[in-house]
Amino acid sequence: MLELKKVCWNLPSGDSILNNIDLKIPSGKMTVVTGPNGGGKTSLAKIIAGLETPSDGSIFLDGEDITKWDITTRAKGGIGYAFQQPVRFKGLRVRDLLNLAAERTLEEREICNVLGQVGLCANDYVDRDVDASLSGGESKRIEIATVLVRKNAKLLVFDEPEAGIDLWSFTSLIEAFERIKNENDKSLLIISHQERILEIADYIVVIANGSVRTYGNREDVLPKLLTEDKARKCPLGKDRQGGNA
């Protein structure tokens, strides 16, 4: 279980981004964080993965205080993080990145399996560079695959995994999330505005203005969110009539 206790994060200017976040991400469950743009969701993910250091408060992973752990230590400790904006590398192939993520040399069938989970055919991608020759959607799917392949991870964090992904690949991704959900030793933390992801969550957290506005079971939270959304009180992201991904 991951637990955040009164976590705050301020910009160097002093502006508050996260304010007294108290949150529990239970093991073997899927927690989805949603809320309006600019509310602090990505900042929360970065704080958990160690990309940013809290200004105040503490973070615990399975009871151990990891607040001062750096990015590498947190990764080795079992936290996987898929970036919202995929990173590109000249000269690193898809195969290389997946092997680094898995911390071993993967067999072809294993690469095929993990790329298949994000809707990619391994034969077409495994030896391609993770560079600008890939489209945004392809890069995003490979980014997600680098986290799915981390077998030792206890907590998998995905920041807006739906962004830039086509409908068919998104269906594969939903199936992958549901599979992980059923692996009781792993926790999923997904930043998302996507209703289909919210619908398979165990818990939903709404973050707005840097604070936890709502936290609870999906059955309790989602109906209210959708009602509020229709009333334009709390947009779940982009305009629903606009057909968010």
Partner: peptide, 28 residues
């Protein structure tokens, strides 16, 4: 910086990440 951070999130140290990036860059 984002390249180093990405590889660090996979468990590499900053030095290991730098070397991997350079090795790949020169091989590619």
């Amino acid at each position: 910086g984002e390249q180093l951070i990405k590889l660090q999130t996979l468990g590499l140290t900053e030095q290991e990440a730098e070397q991997k990036i350079i090795d790949g860059f020169l091989r590619g």
